[in-house]
Amino acid sequence: MDTGELAAFTTSLRQAAQRHGGDFDKGLEEVGWREALADDPSAARAVFAVQGELNLSSSALDDVLLHAAGHPPSPDHAVLISPAGIGTRRLATARSVLVIHGHLAVTVPRNSLTIRTVRGLDPGGGWTEVAGVPSLASLGHGELLSDATLAAGRLAIATELAATARAMLELARAHAVDRIQFGKPIAAFQAVRHRLADSLIATASAEAAVDAGWEEATPYTATMAKAIAGHSARTVARHAQQVLAGMGFTSEHPFHRYLRRVLVLDRLLGTATELSTAMGQTAIRFHEVPATLAL
């Protein structure tokens, strides 16, 4: 999609989200998300950005991974990400499940798995767990996933994390200019200003890494995007929470829902620290750092 098409698609996604509230799957159905994805994988860029911005949850990640692995995305086909044994809410309703374990995957009937809807840290996220994830050996012959498949998933999640970072910063910024203490908006205090500035620095670097991932989609750029977006989102969450203080600690304030989602998204397909550590390990083993981002 070019910039114009992406913007138009984004607008229709926002409108669909407004009509359907937090369960974004219905909205995605309405805008023909799976057809758009089949047409052009960069449709995912808009979907995950809107999810992050509006704190929505959906099963779009299943579609992205299925599509990248060469399976036709369908509401009947869910994805289970091991070793966490977690998937989206589609796990509860699909007929078959692609179980992903590192680079290995195997498709099994859903009714062979024991499903539990997770409340946990992010009860609104629709996360679903499989009790006792079967070992791949016990599931029989599967398929080998390419780096590109995992990269597609990582880039999608990175896109959502960067947008979530931006949204948390926006909540904190709005609060800082509104909230009066000592006769002034708290935005006047340098300690507060610098936290918000650090949040923007982190957000901008996440956005740049995500953009680079979409422009030049390789396993390396996608892994970097997820690592940077994961760390950045945690940085922004920490500063935003401090600026929001007591008000942001209440459950009426939307902040906590973003924080919850960040912590869960970071766990999928490798945490920021796991991914960057793995890249560090490779550099040490081969005595070389990977080629740079080209201009």
Binding site: A204, S205, A206, A208, A209, D211, A212, M224, A227, I228, H231, S232, T273, L275, S276, T277, A278, M279, G280, Q281, A283, I284, V289, P290, T292, L293, L295
Partner: peptide, 19 residues
């Protein structure tokens, strides 16, 4: 590995932005 990874990530983040 963790330290090298963290620096690699910081440099990449800076370069992505500069790009």
């Amino acid at each position: 590995a963790r330290d090298v990874g963290a620096v690699l990530e910081q440099i990449y983040a800076f370069r992505a932005r500069s790009r």
